[in-house]
Simulated assay, not measured.
Amino acid sequence: MVALAPAVVPRRRRALGGGRLAPYLFVAPFVVVFLLFMVAPIVIAVSNAMYSSRSSGLGFGGAETVFVGLQNYATALRDGDFLFGFARVALYGLVQVPVMMLIAAGLALLFDSALVRARRFFQFAVFLPYAVPGVIAALLWGFFYQPSVSPLVQALQGLGVDADLLAPGTVLWSVANVSVWSNAGINMIILFSALQSLPRDTFEAARLDGAGELRMALSLKLPMIAPAVLLTTLSTVIGTLQLFNEPQVLQSITPHIASDWTPNMAIYAVSTLGGDTRLGSAMAVLLGLVTLVVSLVLVRVTNSSSREGL
């Protein structure tokens, strides 16, 4: 009999522990980036909010850092303008989020149907505003909102409508219009991609049973892409709570947007303009907690509705 030589394990494979370390090496870059740019800023903000800078002596000895515990959080919660910013974005979100999702879902369902010609062109046209930076989009719409130069306002005035799109009662919805115009396209793309992954034979069977496009959209397509709808809704809600670019830019052309108009603007005003980074960190942590709670509640409500529908 001929003895078989033992299998030779490649040196590279032995060096990696038989391949057991390979997955960790691939995951390591993500873990490092996640810890540096996601976890570390949160830890630093929480730690920073526990301290305060106070002048020592008669003010000639500079400032010293002292531990104050939850005092900065208490100061933030006593700030009426900061808390009213949450109420303002809540009202903003109650209108903007449903409108955004209705437009995005409606366009995605329309492009997925057989009713649209030149689909690629219209998809590109809807998605194009998302490629415009938020600051540029706010500047563009700011031009359309100024009564002295806006062709939109002048056209409305020509029809006998006295429109002031930057008035105290309308400026919130003018900001919402900029956000919807900028972000509806990306949400439409996400929902349309989810629709394209659905099995086509299900819809063919529904057509043979006499179901129209509207019936299939409401009874089949939307329930089947519920995870994608939840994803886009969550991202829209989080973006609403973090509203900053649009009102910050429009603030320069209207006196009806204060420096603390939204929670994010209040954080910027306190930490950058006011120079109190400790209080700004406390405000940022509170904003993060509110965002987390709202997201968890939305996910729980959505999951409960899905289980009841089964």
Score class of each variant (00 low, 15 high):
Leu110Phe: 11
Tyr130Pro: 06
Phe124Ile: 13
Gln123Asn: 12
Ala76Tyr: 03
Val89Gln: 06
Val135Arg: 01
Ala138Lys: 09
Val99Phe: 14
Ala114Ser: 13
Leu128Trp: 08
Val132Asp: 03
Ala114Asn: 10
Val95Gln: 08
Ala76Arg: 03
Tyr73Asp: 02
Trp141Pro: 04
Leu94Tyr: 05
Phe82Thr: 01
Phe124Asn: 14
Leu109Lys: 08
Gln71Asp: 13
Phe82Gly: 02
Gly134Gln: 07
Val97His: 02
Leu128Thr: 07
Leu115Lys: 12
Phe127Tyr: 13
Ala138Tyr: 12
Gln71Pro: 00
Val116Tyr: 06
Ala90Ser: 13
Ile136Pro: 03
Thr75Asp: 15
Val89Cys: 07
Ala76Lys: 05
Arg78Asp: 12
Gln71Ala: 12
Ala131Val: 09
Pro129His: 08
Ile103Pro: 02
Asp112Ser: 12
Leu140Cys: 09
Leu94Gly: 14
Phe111Arg: 03
Met100Pro: 02
Val97Met: 07
Phe111Gln: 02
Arg119Val: 15
Leu83Thr: 01
Pro98Gln: 08
Leu107Asp: 00
Arg120Glu: 13
Ser113Gln: 01
Gly85His: 07
Gln146Asn: 12
Met100Ser: 10
Gly80Lys: 09
Met101Val: 11
Val132Thr: 04
Pro133Met: 03
Val132Pro: 03
Gly106Met: 07
Gln71Leu: 08
Pro98Tyr: 06
